[in-house]
């Protein structure tokens, strides 16, 4: 469905599994306010279409939610998380916002370019990778970072980036999350505060 024929698909319908999920999304909102479910439905449609939203898919969503199609296009074009053109199997989104940039996103981006041989906004010839530059993805504490598919890859440097991309090239599954020593978003240089052992609940005097 991802445009292998070079032509955008003209037909789209939710699979029965997605239909159920769509129904559940619509059910979260009061009657008559079904349009509120447009974003989750677009998200489902994007997944089903191989990572992007053909016009037919947006119109399908519009039909389900009883919205004029233009209102759906407006939403889909507003959020950069919806892709309006075909993307590769792996959508590599590199954050270049302030925090990531301070922590070296330029090098990360460069190594992506070098490893994949494409620039931002381009897709590799084999259709495996699309490289995008994105704004803050909300993982500043583990900057620099990139998102590939559904996973965040954080605390990147040149080697880590190359490694991840090469694993993907080889068909493997790289480990998501921080690539350095950190497990989560704890301070990189160890704790500087709250270092004492936390008291057990109710131990503190004077607590009601």
């Amino acid at each position: 469905m991802s445009g292998e024929t070079g032509m955008p698909p003209t037909d789209f319908a939710f699979t029965s599994g997605n239909k159920k999920l769509a129904k559940a999304a619509v059910a979260k909102y009061p009657k008559g306010r079904q349009a509120s479910a447009v974003m989750p439905l677009l998200f489902l449609a994007q997944r089903q279409s191989g990572g992007w939203l053909p016009t037919a898919a947006m119109e399908h969503v519009a039909g389900i939610l009883d919205m004029p199609p233009i209102r759906v296009y407006e939403v889909a074009t507003f959020y950069s998380m919806y892709n309006l053109g075909p993307v590769g199997k792996h959508h590599v989104q590199v954050c270049t916002n302030l925090s990531c940039w301070l922590m070296g996103s330029d090098e990360v981006a460069d190594s992506c370019r070098k490893t994949l041989g494409v620039d931002f906004g381009e897709t590799t010839e084999d259709g495996l990778f699309t490289l995008s530059e994105v704004e803050c993805l909300g993982a500043c504490v583990n900057a620099p970072m990139m998102q590939i598919g559904d996973d965040y890859f954080e605390d990147l440097d040149v080697t880590a980036t190359e490694g991840i991309l090469n694993v993907l090239k080889g068909g493997g599954t790289p480990k998501p999350g921080p690539q350095g020593a950190r497990e989560g978003c704890e301070p990189a240089g160890g704790l500087t505060t709250l270092t004492e052992k936390p008291e057990a609940q109710g131990e503190r005097s004077g607590e009601a």
Partner: peptide
């Protein structure tokens, strides 16, 4: 006739019919 809208955002916002 609900055919006109604003697509894109920020500097890239455009007024039109999209299709």
């Amino acid at each position: 006739v609900q055919e006109l809208g604003a697509t894109g955002r920020g500097e890239n916002m455009e007024v039109g019919t999209y299709v």
